[in-house]
Nucleic acid binder design. Sequence first.
RNA 1: GGGCGAUUAGCUCAGUUGGUAGAGCGCCACGUUUACACCGUGGAUGUCGGGGGUUCGAGCCCCUCAUCGCCCACCA
Length: 1017
Amino acid sequence: MNDLPKQYQHAEPEQRLFRFWEERGYFHSEPDPKRKPYTIVIPPPNVTGALHLGHALNNSLQDILIRFKRMQGFNALWMPGTDHAGIATQAVVERRLLQEEKKSRHDLGREKLVERIWQWKNDYEQRILGQLKRMGCSCDWQRTRFTLDDVCARAVRHTFFKLFQEKFIYRGKRLVNWDTYLQTAVSDDEVYHEQVKGHFWHMKYPVIDPRPGEPTHVTIATTRPETMLGDTAVAVHPDPAKALDRAEAELRQKLAAAGDKERPELESQFGALAERRKTVLPTLVKLRNMALAGRRLLLPLVDREIPLVADEWAKPELGSGCVKITPAHDPNDYEVGKRQDLPMVNILNPDGTLNVAAGAYQGQPMLKARERVVAEMDALGLLVEVEDREIDLAHSDRSKTPIEPYLADQWFVKMDQLAQSAMDAVSDGRVKIFPPRYVQGYLDWLGEKRDWPVSRQLWWGHQIPIWYAPTATEADLQKAFAGRDDVVWRRDEEQDQWLICAREQDLAEDSVPGHKLAREQDVLDTWFSSALWPHSTLGWPEQTPELKYYYPTSALVTSRDIITLWVARMVLAGLHNVGEVPFREVFIHPKILDGYGEGMSKSKGNGVDPIDVMEKFGADALRFGLAHLTTETQDVRMPVEFECPHCHKLVEQTKKNRVLPRVKCTQCGGEFSTQWADKPEDKALPRGAVVSERFELARNFCNKLWNAARFALLNLEGYAPAAVADAELSVEDRWILSRLTTVTDETTKALESYRFADAMRQLYEFAWDEFCSFYVEMVKSRLQAPQERGVAQRVLAHVLDAILRLLHPAAPFITEEIWQLLAGAAPERGLTAPAAAAESVMIADWPKAEPRRHDAEIELRFARFQEVLRGLREIRSRQNIPPKTPIRFSARCDAATADLLQPMATYFASMANAQGTVWGPQAAPPATHAQINLKDLELFVDLEGLIDLDAEMARLEKERGRLQGLIAGKEKKLSNADFLARAPADVVEKERAALDDVRSQLASIEQSLTEFRRRKR
RNA sequence: GGGCGAUUAGCUCAGUUGGUAGAGCGCCACGUUUACACCGUGGAUGUCGGGGGUUCGAGCCCCUCAUCGCCCACCA
């Protein structure tokens, strides 16, 4: 056993043990009606890139739960897999295509591009799964799924078919967020807003044949002047006076609630409003009347007649009070257009250039057209004013280019019923969300019941299983698909065609004789397949044994930003397809932020590769460290640095260098590569790992555990298993067993309620502060004593065994390594009925708390012992007495305390080289001594010949000051009649006792000081 | 604009039902006592973001302000 290294070497065991687990088939789970299942489906990582620490946290927690439950006897299944992540992945591959080959996707064509993306997917899937395995994730790897594989595809087809058949799916024109770069619609969730510098152009449109007294022009303002080409109306409020009244009332309310700071600002708005009544209102009233009279305007540049309409969307308190209406290119205008039954003129091509509807501007990009519109309006004298303005411009999260609102044909899922079902499942507790504060957001979002746009103009994804039949008649379809229940069709009145949906088999172009079918080119939103993940991976729509056994799954572990996008949709899809919720509990974990407080993401490039952390600290340190940080409310800030491979100095990670493929060391000037290295010349450089000192705690802890195990192994020679009677147990045995029972109980409870940090802290403190610092120290002498050695060995092996089990979910590798070493020295363990230990800790039983081991008296004795021990060590330290020099001490305390402490005499000797002389009320301070006052106990160390009188006096003076302050405070409290009258009696009593104690401490110090002063003279 | 969370030692974070604050790292001193220097022993360090309030008593409860982060909505 002496050949075990002093420091735990993580690299080799991690590889070896993972293989061992895999060979033994521990990861695999099969349905077994005799056992209870515990199931987690992984949130499938996107194949866009490698995993970062956020994923590492997510998966560490899942593995902790899975391993914990597996040890508790559940038939545990962790279903792994990855997500095709439609837009994100296609965008990455397209971007590279453009960068490296200067080609667009159209140069390649659909088939070739999809082929490229599959290659990418294969690379990254492998990398991702490799990262998970390296972390020790105990997924059932044989069941690994991908959201585009055949099993998932089948589920998607069945779901779409079902929804189509039930009329939950419809096709419609909708204003979508158009990404002109990727040429696809993106969902609201994929849009972010960014402040950019822009302008606010005020322009006027002429009124056609104005009558006397009527305005000749209507002024409008816009940040996007080119959209005027698509204007189909100008709106004015139907009752501008009333609208102003309301605006004023609102302002008044605000003013009443406002603080002094905002008041001037609000008051000036007040003035502006009054001004408006005088200047703008009369015009607006006239315009309103004109609108009601059906008067029309001439849209300049395209010379189109457009109506003036009365609509409440126009706010008389803003701008000119009139607003141009571009229904095809603005969400609000779209609503107005529908209300007012206006034509919708789409002026945009999918690539962001203007189309034929823009007349002379056809073919120009938006921005070019903008310049020209402005110039020409100016030339016509219709440009009134240009203001500079900050504009909150919508951008596509995927391509980072500005979004154009765009009217397009899209597929939708009707959400009213489905959303309601998902709301009910959470409201009535069939799905529980932890922490519960996330429930409200879930309900609010679903409560809007907005229909879900599911089509994407992409090539990477599940192609929508719809075929268009523009020429066929219903009779043709009936004839062609007679007797088939896997094909349904519906009339698309708007486009005058049939929509045919096929459940599993694709339809051939000529499936309807005499007509040509055209397949819908769009693919489905990624979340459509993700929504099915919990049941599609288990084989739905087949009623597989897996689906019956593992569904609903037990827990879902994810981060808060996809509660709506993903969690909500899984709930509604699960309910709709399977008729049961997909999971019982959802745990929302914190986010890992970088040193700047920003969330880690692939797009930002600030992700830290867990491999770097594992290389340096080990997988166990990564996992334990992350779990240790997983508290309920707090996101985890993780400042990181590069470790220079040349000089090993730490190089600060800045916002700039964190995305570079190669970085220059600020110390030695040597260059190194980063996780972003891609080109061969960058990859050739030595790798500079990204590290964080935040994993040192866990790394050190693993090492501590390793060394405790080394100690045990060194001392287990001659170990013989045997039942240990209670009477044979020493005081430290009873203590550590009592503590073990409490810790077992609390760790179990913490894990069961997702309090990961609590569980880790419990175990850390127990293993380090109690087991290593006290139990191991105290057991040393017994291990040397032949009569006591046997029992000591058995208890030592037993407690170490329990620690390994408790820590295994968080730190699987090191616990397994030690477990197997321990099997060599003590293959049969246990105190009541020793039995052969399992061949792997991974399949060992989770420890059960043994309440009968709990011993309050022993724990109290230890608490007092530890206090006194600390006091003795403190005196030794402040008096500078070398550890080798023995000291003598006495303790003045009541008889009961003396009885508790006296049996610990040998431990004071072994752990502080101190010998107790007098215990109890009769103890008196020796002539020269150092003292420490503990609660109800005064500790005197005899320092004859040792004392540093000045040091001791200085300390006593300081202590006296502290006590005096304390006494003053307590006296004040106790002389407060209110306190005496209102505080509970026991609190008052405690306070009195405390005061007495502190007073006697002070008296004792005064006495010593007097004595010391006398001696000095 | 609405909501959620955060603000505690130099850094990163804990803090149970309200009873004058803790950990790890870092810092200082001492130490190589055969499990461990990725260690041991001891020490120093806080107007618990500001201001009000409730209470005998507030880090904890209430109000308010400030700052940071996230989510949702809106911005001709």
